[in-house]
Computed example of a mutant assay.
Amino acid sequence: MKNIKFYSKLSTTQNYKYVKEMDNQQEDDEFRKLNYYPICEIESMNLHSWSYEYFHNRKLFPTSSLLFLSSMFTLIHQYILLIITIIVISSIPISDCLKITLLDIPSPLVVGESAELTCNYDLEDNVLYSFKWYKDGIEFYRYVPRDYPPTQYLKMSGINVDIRKSSKKSVFLHNVNLSTRGKYRCEISAEAPSFVTAAKEGSLEINVLPTSGPKITTDQNEYTVGDEIQANCTSDRSNLDIILNFTINGEPITNSIDYEVKYSTQLHSDSLKTSGLSLRFLLNDKHFHQGKLKLKCIASVPLYNIQNEANKIVKDYQYRHELLQYFASSSSSSASSSASESQAARSKVLNTGRIHHIGHYGHLTEMNMVKCIYVLFTTLIHWQFQNLFQ
């Protein structure tokens, strides 16, 4: 046990009243580890005019030791406050906490559709103060039981709320568009005394489906054997991946030595895109059936199991020319005495393999005859109109 006396060394006696010494005893062998408490009290009219130093057994007490002792006491106080805070928080009943049990955001939606965003919660022993919805951090709907009316809608681009179908647990959106997509957060708050809050968020995606089927274009409408044809198929605008495929006379076409197939995508300023498919190949006899080639483009949207198609008939102009030549030779043979010449011309056409005959006498079938007469009739009318306007 040591008696420690601390003396006040005064730098000035101005406004001095008195100095009072106090004693304290500490059990410590090391000087720097003394459990030190200030024991010098100074009373003065103006404390700013005083300076002081501490002495131990008439020896100067280091200032650094005082700072160490002061910081140690501050740390102890902080630990005590932390322990008290933990005890207070742990004493709060768990039943006072809010809990969101279900967040239902139907996604993705299609432009023009309507949907209900649901947020179910359990108040436990609390009383509801407010129920709110946020989009990208901005509030657009609230339900406050104490307000009149309790439901309120804050206008926002892309958000169309149907108040009549909204409630204290859901909000109803109708006629959604691309601006409707984003992050949605449901937030509930309790009344006093707990004032607890719970929140949960999810994403809403909006898709744009093609409003029309694909379109087929070619550089011309009539070709013949040996010509190179270039066909392009283009889908309508969408934000989805649209799969395009070509068929020729019902047979699927893929990229190969005979067919050159290329895919392309064009992005637009409204964040939508257009898919494209080009087809290039050389025409041969197997492509034409009775002078026609049927080209089809199929557009598929796998996510929604939607399929649209476009058809284009490509004609063989040489076939039409030979058909007209056949009828011309038939007419001349009936009026001409030279039947052998007519038969030779007719045989030349038949040997091309483009007009099919059946039976022992090589007559055209009834259906082919009707088609031939129709082609001849339309051709004659076309010639008449050309002569009329020349």
Rank of each mutant, 00 (worst) to 15 (best):
S49K: 09
K17A: 09
F377V: 14
N387Y: 12
T274L: 00
S275W: 09
K315G: 13
Y319I: 05
T234M: 03
K155R: 07
S71M: 07
V110Q: 06
S347C: 03
E139L: 09
N308H: 07
S300Q: 06
A328L: 12
M369G: 02
V225Y: 04
N46K: 11
L244F: 02
K183Q: 15
I206C: 00
S189Y: 05
L324S: 04
D104P: 00
Y18M: 10
I159C: 09
E205Y: 12
Y184K: 02
A335F: 09
T13K: 12
R237G: 07
S114R: 03
I306E: 05
S90G: 12
S90I: 15
R142C: 01
I243D: 12
I39K: 03
G359K: 12
N15L: 15
L324K: 03
S235N: 08
L364A: 06
P106T: 07
V375W: 04
Y52M: 13
S338R: 10
V19W: 05
E341D: 01
Q26A: 13
T234P: 01
N175H: 09
Y304V: 08
Y36C: 05
L34N: 02
G182L: 01
I355D: 06
F6S: 13
S300K: 06
K17E: 09
K20G: 08
T85N: 10
N46E: 11
V208L: 12
P62F: 08
T12S: 13
E322Y: 14
N175Q: 14
Q386G: 13
N46A: 11
R142D: 04
K165V: 00
N249M: 01
A335L: 07
A345Q: 15
R346L: 12
A190W: 02
Y121C: 01
N308C: 02
N126S: 12
S338K: 11
S49L: 15
V301G: 07
G276T: 09
I4V: 13
N368A: 15
F31P: 06
Y129R: 14
L82N: 10
L47F: 03
E43N: 13
S91I: 02
S334V: 14
K215Y: 10
F172R: 05
I257W: 10
P214E: 08
L204R: 02
H287F: 08
R237S: 10
S338G: 01
P62A: 00
T379R: 04
N35H: 07
E27T: 12
E309G: 01
S11I: 14
T352P: 08
I257H: 11
F61V: 06
G276Q: 08
K5V: 13
F389N: 13
M22F: 12
S342W: 03
T378L: 08
Q152S: 06
E341L: 11
Q318T: 06
T217Q: 03
H56Y: 15
N3G: 12
I216G: 03
N207Y: 04
E187F: 08
L154E: 02
K371N: 14
S130R: 04
T151W: 02
I138V: 08
I84C: 10
K292G: 05
V171H: 03
L154T: 06
V127I: 11
T180S: 10
D219H: 15
I84D: 11
